[in-house]
Amino acid sequence: MTLTIAAISLRETSRRRVALLFVFLLPLVFYLVRLDVHWQAIRFLAIGVGWAIATLSLFSHVGARRLGERLSVIGASPTSLFLGRQLALVGAGLALACAYFALVAATLDVPRLPAVALLLGTTVLVAAPLGALVSLVLPRELEGALALLSLMALQLLADPADAFAKALPMWSTRELAAYAIEPVGAGPLRQGLLHFAGTLVLCSLIAWGANRLRLRPVRLPEPAPEPATR
């Protein structure tokens, strides 16, 4: 069932053509704006990809809520509904990441090019559950989109060296971008991957749990048999 849900969610997402165009354009704008400073361009690109996928995830989860409720009533597992939709979003996100990896490879001379692929891939993997999480906390599209906007603005403006910045979901992008561009050891890579893993687990678990709570129908007992009448 999870794979059917994923395939159909992907089909559904692919029909939002204008939205997909903006999902593609947002990271491009971020990338081009800072193309003069390579590491900044790559970091901004990653945050653009993350923002686009998180927003897509937010709208996808909010839009599917009533249908999800209906499917849960007739017996669909909330976990399958969540995983199916996440698989579709991660699939779409990785396709976007591949396109931008090709762009970086073609336009920049990056010392550790595979690290850029890792950076974009990890960003997508964090963004999809992050959007789902926001959609479950703020179940309306406008409020959710504004919350993501605030989060991403904070992500861009906060001093990465600050302890507070480490609590933001995409702090790992800075470490991984530094590892890709600068002549540094494996320290930033290790720190970035650790942060990514922690954020991924935390966002996924909370989003999955909240989705389960929201979609799980009330357990109703089977009708008791009527007493036999003479």
């Binding site: 559904e12 029909r15 839009g63 599917a64 009533r66 209906r70 009533v73 007739i74 089977e222 008791a224």
Partner: peptide, 19 residues
Amino acid sequence: ERTARVGYAPQQQGVSPLL
């Protein structure tokens, strides 16, 4: 108390507009 095999048609938003 309700039987488990149920069909349900809500008044609104019971279908996905893009499918």
